[in-house]
């Protein structure tokens, strides 16, 4: 992989001076950071720090009043969510969103939607291109399922699955899209300690298999410490610190924001 002068991989995502105000309340007050390519990047901060807001800006769910987002050097401002997904930026949500009443396989296959090129009549009637695409989709989905440990559950209805496995399916759908950049919004929320560890291992395994850049948004500092190489800490809509997890967690400003003291 190419590196910059400092020996770091080039930034796949550049966020510059993003400002968002919602109903007169400042959610982001000029946030800037770079996400290095191929990294597992952490975005941490206490509740209300603006983590989900910046995710929403990157995925075009909300439009910032000011600032820019560049992906692989291309300005994204003005493009919609679907265009960004097709460019390779995928995301998950804090709340698990699945196709209820459908199988794990169908849910993972939904992730392949960004590659759909075959038209309506060919989809319904069947065509050589459509069948080739379907075979490719199935192969990718089966590989992702194997990496995440979902192979035996592919034909189960997602409604019948425990919460932790539903989380994994949600993450799996995003990995099935072969993302260049995957934004995971508190993927371990609501899980017990063991399930959090297993989910994190699954994410790391899938990330190393696919080579995707993953931005992990968490308020669980310990999870980011164990997973991420580089992190940014947000607080009150501003970047408080950046660096390795060890560096940012030693930062007095971060300790004050998280624990209310600087010597924790």
């Amino acid at each position: 992989m190419a590196t910059d002068q400092a020996g770091r991989p080039p930034a796949v995502l550049e966020v510059r001076d993003v400002r968002v105000t919602v109903n007169g309340v400042r959610a982001l007050g000029g946030v800037s950071f770079d996400v290095p390519e191929g990294s597992l990047f952490g975005l941490i901060g206490p509740n209300g720090a603006g983590k989900t807001t910046i995710m929403n800006v990157i995925s075009a769910v909300i439009t910032p009043q000011q600032g820019s987002v560049r992906f692989r050097g291309e300005e994204l401002t003005g493009t919609g969510t679907v265009a960004r997904v097709r460019a390779g930026i995928l995301r998950s949500f804090q709340q698990v969103r699945l196709l209820e009443g459908m199988s794990v396989l169908d849910n993972l296959l939904l992730g392949r939607e960004r590659f759909r090129v075959v038209g309506l009549l060919r989809q319904i009637g069947g065509s050589r291109t459509g069948r080739r695409q379907a075979r490719r989709d199935l192969a990718v989905v089966e590989e992702v399922a194997a990496v995440l440990g979902l192979s035996d559950l592919l034909h189960r209805d997602v409604q019948d699955l425990p919460f932790g496995v539903r989380r994994l399916v949600d993450v799996g759908r995003a990995f099935a899209a072969e993302p260049d950049l995957l934004l995971l919004d508190e993927p371990a929320a609501g899980l017990d300690v063991t399930s959090r560890r297993l989910l994190l291992e699954a994410i790391k395994r899938a990330q190393s298999t696919t080579g995707a850049t993953v931005m992990l948004v968490e308020h669980d500092v310990d999870m980011v410490r164990r997973a991420c190489g580089e992190s940014v800490v947000l607080s009150n809509g501003e970047v408080l610190a950046r660096g390795t997890p060890a560096e940012v967690l030693a930062d007095p400003a971060v300790l004050r924001a998280y624990f209310g003291r600087s010597d924790a």
Binding site: V61, T81, V82, V85, R97, L99, D106, L109, A177
Partner: peptide, 19 residues
């Protein structure tokens, strides 16, 4: 699947690349 995603929510659909 696209229709099922749209039925679930526009947010889920668009975040999966569904128009």
């Amino acid at each position: 699947r696209s229709m099922a995603a749209v039925k679930n929510s526009n947010l889920l659909a668009e975040s999966a690349g569904v128009s």
